[in-house]
Amino acid sequence: MPDAVAHRFQIGDRVKVREAYPIGHVRTPYYVRGKCGVIERVCGAFPNPEELAYAREGRPAQPLYRVRFLQRELWTDYAGQPVDVVEVEIYQHWLEAEGPQP
């Protein structure tokens, strides 16, 4: 896709999801906003759904990543096992670089 934003992240990079709450159609679930995870996979670039939702083209396309979150990072009272994870697809404009885990 020529009219795509350049990729900023690679597999293994630690990222933080922006904690923003605009109106409109946003495909970043609330439960991961402000949370840190690790890039599991680079999925390619896709027209931005926030623009598509208003019948616009959504270009340039946004890189999409699968981000892996430890359940314990998402929910302080998580009742399962420490190894349990959730993986979520997140567009690049919702992600910020995050330093290594302390």
């Binding site: 598509l52 939702a53 019948a55």
Partner: peptide
């Protein structure tokens, strides 16, 4: 004539 994203916005 429509995108799934418009459909979802209208459902939301």
């Amino acid at each position: 004539l429509l995108t799934v994203d418009e459909l979802r916005r209208n459902i939301e």
